[in-house]
Every structure is written in structure tokens, then in C-alpha cells.
Design a protein around this nucleic acid. Structure first.
Length: 173
DNA sequence: CGGGAGATGGGCT
DNA sequence: GCCCATCTCCCGA
């Protein structure tokens, strides 16, 4: 997914960005994964077919955007943590705050949802078609991808499941 | 600049 | 009640 392009045609206009940072949440042996304790109303979309969005509300203020990656019934997804803004920067600033610099528009999971206009109503929709989809972006070589522990979690901190484009200016950290 | 804490609300126990 | 895959502000350096 790194280097792929996330596009959203919203009623307010078009925004798009390159995926530069992700985290994997596995279906087995991963206590940090929302699906670790079985299927619930909240995480049900994670168990659906791959290629759909799993969007959830967190900390009373923010949404996080995931792509379901596991086979149907498995409960596996990839969290998108940061985007390099490509199109619709003016709209992103309108949503995020006009004082924000470009590099602060989508360099975090909550921030990118706000910048892209992604919210709970996108939970479960296909990411292969209008209005919200992932398409070809730029090619990222394996040698340019770095790995680290995941950010902001309290369980499963030992796992090296955060992936990002080394040196990219739009990472969350 | 870096660290600490509050805001804020839905889901789960 | 408590937890939480976060963000922002405010403080001190």
C-alpha cells in the first residue's frame, strides 16, 4: 500500500494523497488488533471481505481509516497513518484549519481522516470505486521502506508492524 | 523544540 | 465505569 494513492470525491470536492505510513493489525496472535477478542458490532467490518474500509471513532474526537486486508472471516486490517497531500490542499486546509502547513494536514491517522473528509459513514464501503478508492500512485522500492513498532497502542508493542517510506516529509513522526 | 495533560464520546465489561 | 490504533494546547527550556 505504501506509495498508493487514496482518492476521495466528497460533496465538498476532491482530495487525494499518497500513502506514506501504515500499520498492520493481524488476525491471529495480535492483542492490539480490534478483532483479537472476536467479532463485535464495532469491528464487524474487519471480518468482511478485503478491499473495504474499516473506519472507527476514537478518543471522542477522531476517526481512524483502515483497509481490510484479510480473507473474509479473518479480522485483519491495515491502518493508514499518514498521507502526502497531492490534490485538494485548499479543501484539506479548510477542513483542518487554514493556518495548517501542508505537512501538518494529514501526518497522523486522525488528521488524515479530517483532511480527506472520511468519517463513520464510510465504514464498510468498497475502496475499489467512487467516491472513495485506492489507485496507483508512485512506486516505492522495498529498500526505501522502514519498519518500527506501532504507535499509540498499549498491547502488542513488541511487534514490528509499522511500515513507512524512509525520510518522507509527511510521516506522523 | 519537547513533554504532559485535557478534551471528548462510543464500545465493551 | 474504564479504556482507547489521537490531537492540540500550554508550559518550560
Amino acid at each position: 500500500m505504501l506509495g498508493a494513492k487514496l482518492v476521495h470525491f466528497s460533496p465538498a470536492g476532491l482530495t487525494a494523497g499518497l500513502i506514506v505510513e501504515t500499520e498492520a493489525y493481524l488476525s491471529r496472535g495480535d492483542p492490539a488488533c480490534h478483532a483479537a477478542r472476536g467479532k463485535t458490532k464495532r469491528n464487524a467490518m474487519m471480518f468482511g471481505p478485503p478491499g473495504r474500509a474499516y473506519v472507527y471513532f476514537i478518543y471522542g474526537n477522531h476517526y481512524c481509516f483502515n483497509v481490510v486486508t484479510g480473507r473474509e472471516g479473518h479480522g485483519e486490517a491495515v491502518l493508514v497513518r499518514a498521507l502526502e497531500p497531492l490534490e485538494g490542499m485548499a479543501l484539506m486546509q479548510k477542513r483542518r484549519g487554514s493556518d495548517k502547513k501542508i505537512k501538518d494536514l494529514a501526518n497522523g491517522p486522525g488528521k488524515l481522516c479530517q483532511a480527506m473528509g472520511i468519517n463513520g459513514k464510510h465504514n464498510g464501503i468498497s475502496l475499489k470505486q467512487y467516491p472513495l478508492f485506492i489507485t496507483a500512485g508512485v512506486s516505492v522500492k522495498a529498500a526505501d521502506i522502514d519498519v518500527s513498532g506501532r504507535i499509540g497502542i498499549s498491547r502488542g508493542q513488541d511487534k514490528q508492524l509499522r511500515f513507512f517510506v524512509r525520510g518522507n516529509a509527511y510521516l506522523s513522526r
